[in-house]
Write a protein that binds this DNA or RNA. Structure first.
Lengths: 364, 364
DNA sequence: ATGAAAGCGCTAACAG
DNA sequence: CTGTTAGCGCTTTCAT
């Protein structure tokens, strides 16, 4: 349509008022949405007043507020939070990093985090690092570049470089799902070693003497296994010839399929095993499925404990004894920590051990 | 008080001197990070050149590029994408709305979407609408306000108001997981009715005559059930006295627990049922568990079909026949659509029916 | 290939 | 309670 004049035509722009759209002088992009300026003009107030009406209505006189609200409704104004975030250094964005979203263990946590944040007007950005943590570093730049008001990490950040960059960014960080004496910033976790020990207690209390472990090969699962083996040794439950316990390590992410084959493997090598601690409920479910198929009575001849407390663990037959982590609490607490920080409040307790529970059901 | 005391958390590379540090005129906040200006100064180029070196290195002379890169490395500069997004109207953020992240059906899709987007430098924002869709409207403002480069919707946006706002925002939208002749913008889906019909075919081909349905009460599951009942009627498989089929509707989200009680309910009322279509794999797994407990042979006396193709469906015994949706493809395709749009390319086909497949296993 | 100027849309700092 | 002013950090436009 319009040919961009732009050339010649000196046009000193006596910038008095918006010229009648007759000639565009310096064409600059306009995103095209309704802006606060238009709302303010329509309401007959200054931009900042319109801004206050939207963000802190309690600071605005009722009559003014009503006029601005009317203008907002008429124009369909939606605040540009990118601009707002830039001006105020508050993006109201929180980044979460999970190894993978598939695989049910972290879901409850992410769900609770999303909801709690949404309730405070924050939005979640999701990043997947992969179990290997390979993408973690690239993710970090993508995340820090968005200047989120908080970063939620599943697990501890081990890479020195990652820690440094996170620290340098000045963004509040919550590490979760593990414990360490030196978190980057805040920490909400539990002890994987203690879980292993608690499972040994559970088995021992039920008279099991021949413990075994079936575990995924990710770092935290292996630490649970180590805690389990240690505790078994301490109780004199270790196999002497093994200098430990019969253990089978399978590739993460774990599946019921590897649980099924894992059981067969384990029994082939150690037929007298009478208790298995699995590093995930899926693995444990696989063990239960295969045990049933093989006519191995659970809990009669074999006791099984899982990890994660899937909904299915309760509904299975036999119902699965498992270790429960309260993901909902972790998510909610993390959201509170981050929002508190973002709004300038001090977080009283920076390291929280949320613990775990062994949910005793029919499989033991 | 070690971290985040306000601005500078680490020693900022002994930068020579912030110019004109003494003549403070009007104090204004500084977010405290390294900015492009500092990089440019250190490299001895204009800001815009530094910007080009970072974003479009092919437009910059090699020597200049090297100097800028060095400055970036020395300062630890991370571009502020909020500022960049504001200036360029390209946030490189994509919003995804799912009913819930818990409940495994959408996960595969979200995972694939996240990864595909990340590969193109885009980040996912996650929003949960709840099955009722109640929060959908509030979510919409939160999303539009962030000016994402694309919006991914699980399901069709039905609310007129929502459609209007989405349209008005001018943001590319991908609706998924369903079909409609009039999508807001782009659509990647499949027919729930046809799924119901395909399951009837599957049962009929295996000689089943007494079909039943066990279904969650969310809209799409009910449409699958309707397609199922219609097709059964068309084949003369309907119960005359019921004017349809034995059907039990349970509250979403569905669980194995409701599958177990559902089976008992259904059989109590219709003992002759020989095939059940469940609206989710979890429900179907519950049916399998309870059937085994009751000594009902599957598939001998009862055939069972699920929906979603959980990993566990394959590993169960008997392995579960189920309807598979290729969430990975949907996610990948959606990412491509959105990125193409964001980068100004035209999307050739705006409506895609990805279909589904009935994965035949031992439960039928 | 590089640069100067002019904002993107909004809010923090002061005044009144 | 309302307004003025000056940017947040970056990229676009136009000009070398």
């Amino acid at each position: 349509m319009r040919y961009h004049a732009g050339v010649s035509a000196v046009d000193k722009t006596s910038q008095s008022k918006p010229p009648a759209a007759e000639r565009d002088r310096r064409p600059r992009r306009r995103t095209g949405g309704v802006t606060l300026r238009e709302v303010a003009e329509l309401a007959g107030v200054a931009m900042i007043t319109a801004s206050r009406a939207v963000n802190t209505p309690e600071l605005v006189a009722p009559a003014t507020l009503a006029r601005v609200r009317k203008a907002v409704a008429e124009t369909g104004y939606v605040p540009n939070m990118l601009a707002g975030g830039l001006a105020s250094s508050r993006s109201r964005l929180v980044a979460a990093v999970v190894p993978t979203i598939v695989g049910p263990v972290f879901l409850e946590m992410v769900q609770s985090l999303t909801e709690s944040l949404a309730a405070s007007g924050y939005q979640l950005m999701l990043g997947q690092s992969g179990y290997a943590g390979s993408r973690e570093d690239a993710l970090l730049d993508a995340i820090i570049g968005r200047r989120p008001d908080g970063i939620f990490l599943t697990g501890i950040m081990h890479s020195e470089d990652g820690r440094r960059r996170l620290l340098a960014s000045g963004i509040p960080v919550v590490e979760t799902w593990d414990l360490t004496p030196e978190p980057i910033d805040m920490l909400i976790g539990f002890s994987h070693e203690k879980i292993g020990a608690a499972v040994v207690d559970h088995f021992a209390a039920r008279g099991r003497r021949r413990l075994a472990a079936l575990t995924g090969d990710d770092a935290r699962a292996l630490r649970r296994k180590d805690g389990y083996v240690q505790a078994a040794r301490a109780r004199g439950l270790a196999h002497d010839e093994l200098d430990g316990l019969p253990t089978l390590v399978v590739r993460a992410p774990t599946t019921a399929g590897s649980g099924r084959t894992g059981l067969l493997d384990l029994l082939a090598r150690h037929p007298d095993v009478d208790a298995i601690f699995c590093s995930s409920d899926l693995l444990a479910l696989g063990v239960l499925i295969e045990a049933q198929l093989q006519g191995i009575a659970v809990p009669g001849r074999l006791a099984v404990v899982g990890f994660g407390d899937l909904a299915l663990a309760r509904d299975f037959h036999p119902a699965l004894t498992t270790v429960r982590i309260d993901g909902t609490s972790i998510g909610r607490l993390a959201a509170r920590f981050i929002v508190d920080r973002a709004e300038g409040r001090e977080v009283a307790q920076r390291i929280v051990d949320v613990g775990f529970s062994v949910v005793s059901r029919d499989s033991t």
